[in-house]
Every structure is written in C-alpha cells, then in structure tokens.
C-alpha cells in the first residue's frame, strides 16, 4: 500500500563506557532542546533519521546502548544487524579511552566482520578538563584504520557530521560491492528481526 520512501536502511549503534555521553549524542540535547519530563524519564530507545547522500535517501536507525553494559557482557545478539558502530570515549576520562581497545576487540569478536566503525572523542567542549589529547585519538584510529572525530553532544559539535560520515562510509562500501538494488533488498529484509527483538527484550 504505502510507497517506499527510502533507498537504503542503515542500523547504527552507539557503544562505549558508561558516562561518555552516548545518550546525549542520540538525544542531541543541547540546552535549547525541548526535553520533556515524561520522555526523558522513560528514555529514548532509538531514532529514525532520514538523510540524503549521493542522491540516495537513507534511513538511519540509531540505537543507544544501556550504560551498565561492559564489553565482556556484550555479545553477538547485541550487534545483530548493525552496519555501523560509533565507538565513544570521553576526552576527560582516561579510562574510557583505554577501554576503546577492549571495545574494538569485542566488536571484532562479536559484530559482523565488515561493520563500519568510527571513534568519537566526546565532550570536546571541556578542553580545560581534557586528559586525552586529540593526537592520541587520531593515532589509535589510524592504527585500526578507522575514522575519528572529536565531538560535543553538549555544544552540538560534529554530531550530525559524524553520523553522515559513518553513513557515507557504509554507503561507499555497500555500493562498491554489489549492484544497488540487490543491496537494498538485503538490508530492508534484515530490519524486522532486529527491531522487534530489541523492542521486546529491552525492558
């Protein structure tokens, strides 16, 4: 009945230590945002956003992940269907940066092997409290051949850009591998399982 309103669907996950700002990145909530008590109390599970890249309409389904999770408890089911992962650390928190390596190992073990990754050094608005230099962020990203960006959910710096870049990388990868139509079907078919599992089991 309803006509299809998009070309591709990318499922993205936000991963990282507790307190690094994953929920704020998803909420995007800077101080000007209209956050209601009711919604902020129950919390947001995921967002659907539509962007246009290279003439294609792309739906991003972006999932937050629960804070108490530690890398050793996150397994395959967590990553199911994920095509992109935002790996977040806090530039004022050394430990969260050191744990990036552990998160990367966990992703290698459990996620789809061609999942596209990106490292975000969040809270870059707090330069006075910084303990992790930008160079160290860039270096670790380079070592693992993944993208890197410093962001601030609070000041809304590079958040949109980061998601666009990650989506663009996925698009580039998928487009280079198979003819468009084919790729499209695979991704669209993948979505119902992932979304329904998450909705029922999450709470």
């Amino acid at each position: 009945m309803a006509k299809k309103t998009y070309d591709l669907l990318f499922k993205l996950l936000l991963i990282g230590d507790s307190g690094v700002g994953k929920t704020c990145i998803l909420f995007r909530f800077s101080d000007d945002a209209f956050t209601t008590t009711f919604i902020s109390t129950i919390g947001i599970d995921f967002k659907i956003k539509t962007i246009e890249l290279r003439g294609k309409k792309i739906k991003l389904q972006i999932w937050d992940t629960a804070g108490q999770e530690r890398f050793h408890t996150i397994t395959t089911s967590y990553y199911r269907g994920a095509m992109g992962i935002m790996l977040v650390y806090d530039i004022t928190n050394e430990k969260s940066f050191e744990n990036i390596v552990k998160w990367l190992r966990n992703i290698d073990e459990h996620a789809n092997e061609d999942v596209e990754k990106m490292i975000l050094g969040n809270k870059c608005d707090m330069d006075d409290k910084r303990t992790v230099s930008m160079e160290r962020g860039e270096l670790i990203a380079k070592e693992h051949s993944i993208r890197f960006m410093e962001t601030s959910a609070k000041s809304n710096i590079n958040i949109e850009r980061a998601f666009r870049e990650l989506a663009d990388a996925i698009l580039y990868k998928t487009a280079g591998r198979e003819p468009g139509d084919n790729v499209d079907r695979v991704m669209v078919d993948r979505k119902p399982t992932s979304s329904s599992t998450k909705s029922c089991c999450n709470h």
């Binding site: 309803a2 309103t5 669907l9 967002k47 659907i48 909705s199 709470h203």
Partner: peptide, 19 residues
C-alpha cells in the same frame, strides 16, 4: 512500517507501547 517515518524517536518500552 516504522521506516516510513522521515524523522522520529522511539522511547523505551512501556507495557505494549513505545512513545
């Protein structure tokens, strides 16, 4: 189909619904 939405947020589950 939820992917019909252009832009939308889904809350965590409350009973049988998400807001």
């Amino acid at each position: 189909d939820m992917f019909t939405f252009q832009n939308v947020g889904f809350s965590n589950t409350v009973g049988n619904t998400k807001y």
